[in-house]
Design a protein around this nucleic acid. Sequence first.
DNA 1: ACGGGTCGCTGTATCGTTACAGACGACTCC
DNA 2: GGAGTCGTCTGTAACGATACAGCGACCCGT
Lengths: 349, 349
Amino acid sequence: MATERPTLDTVAAAAGVSRMTVSNAYNRPDQLSLGTRQRVLAVAAELGYPGPDPTAASLRLRRSGTVGVVLTERLPYAFADPGLVTILHGIATELSAAGNALLLVPGRDADGGSLLRHAIVDGLLLCALDERDPVVTAAVERQVPMVTVGQPHLRGVPRVGPDNRRGAALVAQHLLELGHRRFAILTTASAGAGEIPRPLFGERVEGFRAAAVGGGAAAADVMIVCASENNRDAGRHAVAQLLALPAAQRPSAVFAVTDILALGGLDATAVAGIDVPAQLSIAGFDDVSAAASSSPPLTTVDHDLYEQGRAAARLVLRLIAGERVRTPRSRMALVPRASTGPAPSRSPR
Amino acid sequence: MATERPTLDTVAAAAGVSRMTVSNAYNRPDQLSLGTRQRVLAVAAELGYPGPDPTAASLRLRRSGTVGVVLTERLPYAFADPGLVTILHGIATELSAAGNALLLVPGRDADGGSLLRHAIVDGLLLCALDERDPVVTAAVERQVPMVTVGQPHLRGVPRVGPDNRRGAALVAQHLLELGHRRFAILTTASAGAGEIPRPLFGERVEGFRAAAVGGGAAAADVMIVCASENNRDAGRHAVAQLLALPAAQRPSAVFAVTDILALGGLDATAVAGIDVPAQLSIAGFDDVSAAASSSPPLTTVDHDLYEQGRAAARLVLRLIAGERVRTPRSRMALVPRASTGPAPSRSPR
DNA sequence: ACGGGTCGCTGTATCGTTACAGACGACTCC
DNA sequence: GGAGTCGTCTGTAACGATACAGCGACCCGT
């Protein structure tokens, strides 16, 4: 029966109408009479015509109704990171509301080639990528409407994301107001696996240090401690080492560049019997859900990842529609909780 | 400079070669001399040519390197369900390893039309959909390689997923061997919000009942209890009501169609001071991570969602490659833990 | 009966790419 | 020196659809 796959032409010939009429039967029901339409669709069904080919339509229309999202070089890792999943949730919400599909693009394929070159998309969202990642270059070369989320910063490309420097400075200011003058910044080893790009944490480290020193701390009193990875265990180990320092050298407040690390730090204080915040203040960054229910609840910086995803999706849709957009300013706020308190008196017992 | 967007032709003319040579410069470096290739790419860069248009290439090649995934009618809900995210993780792992992108297709757009008609995909994966969902019809009409995960069962379409009847029967058999003869099946109200399709739970209920009755229980001794929703609180309420029954009518074992409900049931027994499993056995289904660490640990049925996602992706890729595949048998196993034990003696104290 | 409007349908001209079959010179081999 | 081979490059023919202008036919009011 169906020796070759039917096309619009096949159906048109069988129904005795022009190809355009068949196309209209599917896409513009108001452009033809009800009778003709039903007849055409009946013939199409009989021939087993699966409907207009979306690829051909996209070529002609010059749009596909699809937005590409690049999450990390190796896509599957993205699903292991609750933060990225949250961003993705926001993106999906906004895209599907606008009738767009979401294409998840692996950064590179097995051959090292960039799949991005072959992705059929009207626009791109780059999430949390290192700016030296080759996939970023490939994205720019595509010359497609594009928005970045978090990282990287690219000239001429709108970016949604927190001002990491400002957020870290908010924490520094909070701790300075509580009387702290000796700090440790807890970050991940910069030579680490690179699962999460360095620039992001670098901005937080620099933002905190600059604000702390600018606010009265001695440069020598802002130490930097590196955890081996960005996970709770690594945070615990790093803070445990910190607690082993002689009291005189010990900082009175720790700023961890992620909540995960900060929560690990709380674990270490619990083990060591250190009272937080009486003996040591700890603050994090991200306001993940666990931060509100830790013991004690964690002071942190809230920047709404779900909303960032939504905002980025809205922006790229507007770019696709031909509007001009500017990088918006993200909502961001210090969330003071019980893990930070006044600095202990000058000589801790 | 670039009054019109350059194409292969533009670049070919400017470089003084044929269009095919430009195409080969991008896609088949071995088909032309190094010198020519570099010259062509240089000219392309100068003209700002973004590389071959993926849409046109897909039209010509009849493949896009993309697999579509339909998770639920409203895409964003998918990210709220850890089970679906796990399946998606498995799918993404396998697809990206094979150099394919993953298109998340919302079931329907704002106008009620199906976006699936416009999705550019080489194949489709349908996850956990009700078979009466119009999106399923739309998918079938696309006449594209397709695999379903969990639900629905479709004639001629391979399906990956547990045999719910068999899994439930495993639980029934386990409880029968422990001497239980009076059962309650805990499921969700069939007239519920429909967040998760009914057939899935229906199969589990029927599978358990059939195996229990077939194994020696009186039909009247298999009662069905409905929780208002599939969450822990609703499970707790439902089991609390069960515990309020006169001892003579009370079942000695409860089979909950999901672990979530079963965990709620454990909460209820803890509140009521009922000893599990000495006074009441409780079993679940799914082996979610929390099942291993509940108190007592939950007897349940393990069917690996991550592996199901991987298996489904592999299958659809093989279909796309033109191979014939058969619906595989999923690994599934009863995981006996401490929440089930021998039936209490005939007259409970 | 005639101008003007609407309805329903058709024809032509792309959209940008890649497969395939060959053409053409140079090189190798006997 | 002629035949075969290789490496490069070219031309033609799709792939399957949609936008847009336009053309009869029909209905109206006058």
